[in-house]
Amino acid sequence: SKDAAQYVYDEAQKGVTQVTVNGVTFKFDNWQKLLKYAQKLLN
Rank of each mutant, 00 (worst) to 15 (best):
L41V: 04
A12W: 11
A5P: 14
T25M: 11
K2H: 08
E11W: 14
D3F: 08
Y37P: 00
A5C: 15
N22W: 15
Q39S: 03
F28D: 02
Y37G: 00
K36T: 05
V8L: 10
V21C: 14
T17E: 07
Q32E: 06
A38C: 14
L41W: 04
T17H: 07
E11I: 12
F26Q: 05
K33C: 10
Y7I: 13
D3Y: 02
Q32W: 12
F26I: 12
V24N: 06
Q32M: 05
Y9G: 11
A12T: 10
L42H: 01
N43C: 00
V19E: 01
K14R: 06
Q13V: 11
W31A: 00
K36A: 12
Y37T: 05
F26E: 02
T20M: 06
T17L: 14
K36I: 09
T25N: 05
G15T: 13
F28K: 03
L42R: 00
T25V: 11
A12Y: 06
D3N: 04
Q39P: 00
K14S: 08
K40R: 03
Q39E: 05
K27R: 12
N30M: 11
Q6F: 04
N43I: 06
W31D: 00
L34I: 02
L41S: 00
K33M: 07
L35A: 00
N30Q: 06
A38N: 00
E11A: 03
D29Q: 12
V19I: 11
K2W: 13
L42V: 02
A38P: 01
Q13D: 12
D29V: 13
V21S: 09
Y7M: 11
L35H: 01
K27F: 15
K14H: 11
A12M: 11
F28N: 02
Y9V: 06
F28C: 15
Y9N: 08
L41G: 00
G23Y: 12
Q32L: 09
Q39R: 03
G23E: 05
Y37A: 01
N22P: 07
F26K: 03
N22V: 15
G15S: 10
Q32N: 06
T25Q: 06
W31F: 07
V8T: 10
A38T: 03
Q13W: 13
V21N: 07
A5V: 05
S1W: 15
L34W: 02
Q32A: 10
T25H: 09
Q13F: 14
S1L: 13
D29M: 10
A12F: 13
K27T: 05
A38Q: 00
Q13I: 12
K33V: 04
D10M: 14
V24P: 04
D29R: 10
V19W: 11
A12P: 08
T17Y: 14
N43S: 05
Q6N: 02
N43P: 01
Q6D: 13
A4D: 13
N43K: 13
E11R: 01
Q6S: 02
T25A: 11
G15H: 12
S1G: 12
Q18I: 12
A12N: 08
G15Q: 06
N30I: 15
N43T: 02
K33Y: 05
Y9W: 14
N43G: 03
T17F: 13
T25P: 12
Q13H: 07
T25E: 03
Y37K: 01
G23H: 07
V8S: 11
T20Q: 05
K2T: 12
V16S: 05
Y37Q: 02
Q39W: 13
K33F: 08
D3S: 01
V16W: 10
Q32H: 10
F28S: 02
Y9F: 11
A5D: 10
L35V: 02
A12K: 03
Q13R: 04
V16K: 04
A38V: 14
Q39A: 04
K2R: 05
F26R: 05
Q6K: 06
T17R: 01
K14W: 14
Q18T: 07
N22F: 15
A4K: 08
Y7D: 13
L35N: 00
Y9T: 13
T20Y: 03
Q13T: 09
Y9C: 14
K33L: 09
Q32I: 13
D10N: 08
K14E: 09
D10C: 00
F26N: 03
K27D: 11
K27N: 15
A5F: 13
K33H: 09
L41E: 00
Y7T: 15
V24L: 12
S1Y: 13
D3W: 08
Q32F: 12
L34S: 00
N30D: 12
D3R: 01
K33T: 10
Q6E: 12
K14T: 10
L34N: 00
G23S: 04
